[in-house]
């Protein structure tokens, strides 16, 4: 197995699918200013997906472009974490999902800037700048909603309760990670989880929110086993490429 390719697909699919979800908000945000802000984040994510999947194609060496990879795989070949494919629901769910993800991606990209793979390090460098802003934005919103009104507190607490079960998967590792870690391309997932936990506890505390004690966690995304939601995402994402195969746009 080409472990670097596999890793890049996991990394790129997180950006691709979350970018897709966020872009569903475009035109429907809670206020104009926030509509613009969410679209900016979606744009960053689509940009990340583009550069990561492009590199994945190069690493694979079979002549696939970033578009081939993004649009023309079967469902089981998508390797995003389950968290990012969860439906937008209300703004509270969207922002909580974003925060839990950003809190993972920021330390991840920080680590990857040190990668022995120069191209990955360069992608991480650029993405880190974007992610720092995303995290600031989503953390502030989680705090505002958590410590806002009773209604917003309840909504965002229930979002946390529903999404918490997908957080462990962010730190999923298998032989892919072991191989790349040995090569100095990626780094310890335990350290990652430690900084994530600290950040999450700190923000949720300010937001007066409580981490649910239901310990059951889902995974599968990194191995291509998804929730029912992904199929619908792909039906839209792939519509044009599937309906008009091989054409240029």
């Amino acid at each position: 197995m080409n472990t670097l390719f596999e890793y890049l697909v996991r990394l790129g699919d997180d950006s691709l699918i979350l970018g897709h979800r966020l872009s569903e908000w475009c035109g429907h945000g809670p206020i104009l200013e926030e509509d613009i802000a969410m679209t900016n984040i979606a744009l960053d994510l689509v940009g990340q997906a583009t550069s990561i999947l492009k590199y994945a194609g190069e690493v694979e060496g079979k002549g696939r472009s970033e578009d081939d990879i993004a649009f023309l795989r079967y469902e089981r070949e998508y390797k995003n974490a389950l968290l990012v494919e969860q439906p937008n629901d209300d703004f509270g769910v969207t922002m909580m999902r974003q925060f839990l993800f950003d809190a993972f991606r920021k330390p991840l990209f920080e680590q990857l800037t040190q990668s022995s793979d120069e191209q990955l390090a360069a992608i991480a460098e650029k993405s880190l700048k974007e992610t720092k802003y995303h995290l600031k934005h989503s953390a502030e919103w989680v705090i505002r909603l958590g410590d806002g009104t009773d209604e917003s507190h309840d909504r965002v607490q229930s979002a946390l309760n529903d999404l918490w079960r997908y957080t462990d998967e962010l730190f999923f590792t298998d032989e892919v990670d072991a191989d790349l870690e040995a090569k100095g391309i990626i780094f310890s997932s335990e350290e990652l989880k430690a900084s994530w936990s600290e950040m999450v506890k700190n923000v949720l505390n300010q937001a007066t929110l409580t981490i649910p004690d239901n310990g059951w966690q889902h995974d599968g995304g990194r191995r291509g086993l998804h929730s029912e939601h992904l199929g619908y995402i792909l039906a839209e994402l792939q519509y044009m490429q599937r309906a008009y195969p091989g054409m240029e746009w």
Binding site: S23, G27, F71
Partner: peptide
């Protein structure tokens, strides 16, 4: 936006609607 045929068109359309 969610049905744009490739990543470049998707980004352009997002930016435009924004």
């Amino acid at each position: 936006i969610t049905r744009a045929p490739n990543l470049r068109r998707k980004a352009v359309l997002l930016a435009k609607v924004q």
